[in-house]
């Protein structure tokens, strides 16, 4: 087990109202090299869990352990190692990249911060390698990101996270803002990286079809609680909880016959 999240709870201040508890005793584990999906409707607490995993916010109860590090209380060298080995990619490929930095500066930033390559030449080489790996043209290294498409920006964000060789990549809705055709490119890239680098991926998404495609393990959240977790086959083949079943039944499928039949069946069920 690489990371364990052990009954964490989290409240946000909602002044003047009393603090609202948005996570209740959430427990889940991440093994090295596995892709795990966090699904649930809007407001169910997916992003809050992701932020706790990245130590961007602290839960008030429970424990988070990463490879022997007590994440909630980590300091100094331990915290630095955690920050290096657990990386993130967010939804918005436009807001998350500084427009005043070149692609090389953006991707190489982590190498500088974590002092991983001593010379500029060595950094440049690493940046070129990673760009090649994620399907970007290393010749674009000196350009600014303004003129890049959403999909290319998301590749830059992924390259930026991967260049320092993390062991966990936490992605919060990384393809939600992308077009269908480009979405498939990014999903394939993540899948490829997971296998090549034995990378664990935490994939937050409300698109269950994407999650089914990418993740071997799925955690279903509802109102801040884990209602069900299991393997891909368990969750998609034989969901036990009514909430999970209703979530799956509502996903539209791109096939007129199957799509209409699914909707008709589901409406019959709600009518009864």
């Amino acid at each position: 087990m690489l990371m364990s999240i052990d009954s964490i709870s989290k409240s946000y201040n909602a002044f003047p109202n009393p603090p609202a508890k948005v996570l209740h005793d959430v427990t889940l584990n991440i093994d090295a090299g596995e892709a795990i999906g966090l699904v649930g409707e809007s407001g169910s607490g997916k992003s809050t869990i992701a932020k706790c995993m990245l130590a961007l916010i602290k839960p008030e109860d429970g424990a988070i352990t990463y490879d022997g590090i007590d994440v909630i209380h980590a300091k100094g060298e331990e915290l630095r190692r955690f920050r290096r080995e657990v990386q993130m990619v967010f939804q918005d490929p436009y807001g998350s990249l500084n427009p005043r930095m070149t692609v090389e500066e953006l991707i190489g930033e982590g190498l500088l911060i974590h002092k991983l390559e001593p010379t500029a030449a060595a950094r440049r080489k690493r940046v070129a390698e990673i760009m090649d790996m994620v399907g970007l043209n290393p010749n674009d290294m000196d350009r600014y990101t303004r003129s890049f498409s959403g999909g290319q920006r998301q590749r830059i964000a992924i390259a930026r996270a991967l260049v320092i060789r993390p062991r966990i990549l936490v992605c919060d809705e990384p393809v939600a803002a992308l077009d269908v055709s480009v979405q498939a490119q990014v999903i394939n890239l993540l899948q490829d990286m997971q296998k090549k680098l034995n990378l664990a991926i935490v994939f937050v998404a409300h698109d269950l079809a994407v999650v089914r495609h990418l993740c071997e393990k799925i955690v279903v959240l509802h109102k801040g609680k884990v209602v069900e977790q299991g393997s891909r086959d368990e969750i998609f083949g034989n969901p036990r909880m009514p909430y999970t079943q209703s979530l799956l039944a509502a996903v539209p499928v791109p096939d007129p016959v199957a799509g209409r039949a699914r909707r008709a069946a589901r409406r019959l069920e709600t009518a009864n």
Binding site: S149, A184, A209, V253
Partner: peptide, 24 residues
């Protein structure tokens, strides 16, 4: 054809998604 193939499906297992190269 590409758009239809590129959509991941909740009711099917696929190995690799088809991706249309490039961007609009």
């Amino acid at each position: 054809q590409g758009l239809i193939k590129a959509v991941p499906r909740i009711d099917q297992d696929l190995n690799t998604l088809y991706a249309i190269p490039g961007a609009p």
